[in-house]
């Protein structure tokens, strides 16, 4: 399953946080360690905008964390998955501070940790744990083109219902994880 992309549709997310727990279960993360945090964001515009932020690695095409890491513990693989090697990590936490998405996180032992796109599952062709569990198809995975098409389709459909949204990750900044979020 190479060149897989993920769409996170925050307009369909119901905030059940099953993805966050599935992530912890799949990656064997003890208390205090998270790769994915889901939290409520709310603000006023011409209407009440309320959605759940999914704070995790976006798997950038040009990852700043990789550039900042002094020991080369973070690497962007050929298939676009940005992986971090815990054994190489020296715990300087610079990747954490340079990430604009809050994707790399400080773990309980002081090292950094981040979403690996469930690379161990990808190997056997199974989608990431968070995608498998999501009850509302707010998280889907597939080939890049297919996912971009689906994202555009959902955006257009929402616009038709008078709900304006924005897509992140397919325009000027390219990321493997695409976000559709309300505006």
């Amino acid at each position: 399953m190479s060149n897989q992309s993920m769409l996170i549709d925050l307009t369909s997310c119901i905030g059940c946080k099953a993805c966050a727990v599935a992530c912890k279960q799949e990656n064997g993360l003890a208390a205090g360690n998270t790769f994915l945090k889901v939290w409520l964001k709310e603000y006023l515009k011409d209407k009440v905008v309320k959605y759940y932020v999914h704070q995790a690695c976006h798997h950038c095409n040009a990852p700043r964390c990789q550039a900042a890491c002094p020991v080369g513990a973070i690497e962007r693989r050929e298939d676009g998955v940005v992986v971090q090697d815990e054994d190489k990590c020296i715990g300087c936490q610079v990747c954490v501070t340079v990430c604009p998405y809050g994707g790399a996180k400080i773990m309980a032992n002081g090292k950094a940790g981040k979403c690996s796109f469930c690379k161990h599952r990808l190997k056997s062709g199974v989608p990431s744990a968070c995608v498998t569990v999501c009850p509302t198809q707010a998280r889907i995975m597939g080939g890049r083109e297919e996912i971009v098409r689906e994202a555009e389709r959902r955006k257009a459909e929402l616009l038709g219902k008078g709900c304006s949204t924005r897509l992140e990750g397919i325009n000027d900044i390219q990321t493997k994880v695409i976000y559709l979020l309300p505006e």
Binding site: H54, Q55, A56, P100, G103, I106, G110, R166, E168
Partner: peptide, 16 residues
């Protein structure tokens, strides 16, 4: 580190 994670979440400019 723990405090940082809490503070940083509130600071995120990008939608994430």
């Amino acid at each position: 580190g723990e405090e940082y994670e809490i503070k940083a979440a509130g600071e995120l400019e990008c939608a994430t």
